[in-house]
Amino acid sequence: MTRVKAALRYVLLAIGAIAFLFPFYYMIVGSLQATPDPTISGAFPDPANLTGENYVAINERVNLFQGLANSGIFTGGVILGTVVFGVLAGYALAVLNWRGRGITFAMVLLVQVVPFQLLMIPLYVMIARDYGLSDSYLGMILPFFINSTAVLIFRQYFLQLPKELFDAARIDGAGEFRLLWTVALPLVRPALLTAVLLTFIGPWNEFLWPFLITKEAALQPLAVSLANFISNIAASTSNPFGAMMAGAVVLAGPAVALFIIFQRYFVSNDLGSGVKG
């Protein structure tokens, strides 16, 4: 009875895994097809129909390297802001005792539920029109500069450190800044990785905001240039689906690789504490 149940459980999980992974497999197969083959047999790679041409074709229309570099700068800027200022805020919320801490913490929670895209018109007016930051990395990064979920994760980890540790270091005469840098930070290194991974997803995959403020192709992150290719130019290529999927593989590749390599830092408990506060 229990064996049957366990087997059923694995069957259910395996169906789920196939449903989640198949489109990725199909993406790779499709990106390598010389002529698109949507039939059932086309789901299996056919040596006679394999080619790298699609990657060349998409690279002629969309500068893949430039797009990856722009995505990298955008994402890197956000991660830098989140790690530097998010750690400071998380530390202040968890370890330090100051007036306004309660309100600040409530604000971190509130920001999580403000649908960001509803702010897009005022942000567009402010950043693109008033500050003249359209077509610039700064304008891209600004609305995402400090990830609030990461602040919550930092706070959660700092809270778990024993209080005696801080008291002992304070008695030894360490200032708060040294305390953060030499005592607390080395102990929460796993949190740093979790927060970096979580922060990475946002800007790397973000489409709407960079799409609004970058009109210049040389500054567009890959998600934006690929989307423009899909909606405007794909039809004019000889194998539009192949080229689209080749671009998709290049865009998805770094994110998927990162999350497979560092999967043990992306587990339920960190996220649960982060999202629930």
């Binding site: 489109p23 990725f24 993406m27 489409f207 690929l226 689209m244 998709a248 998805a252």
Partner: peptide, 10 residues
């Protein structure tokens, strides 16, 4: 963790 834009293509 994958961009919508990439998955839309498939």
């Amino acid at each position: 963790v994958t961009a919508s834009v990439a998955i839309v293509a498939v």
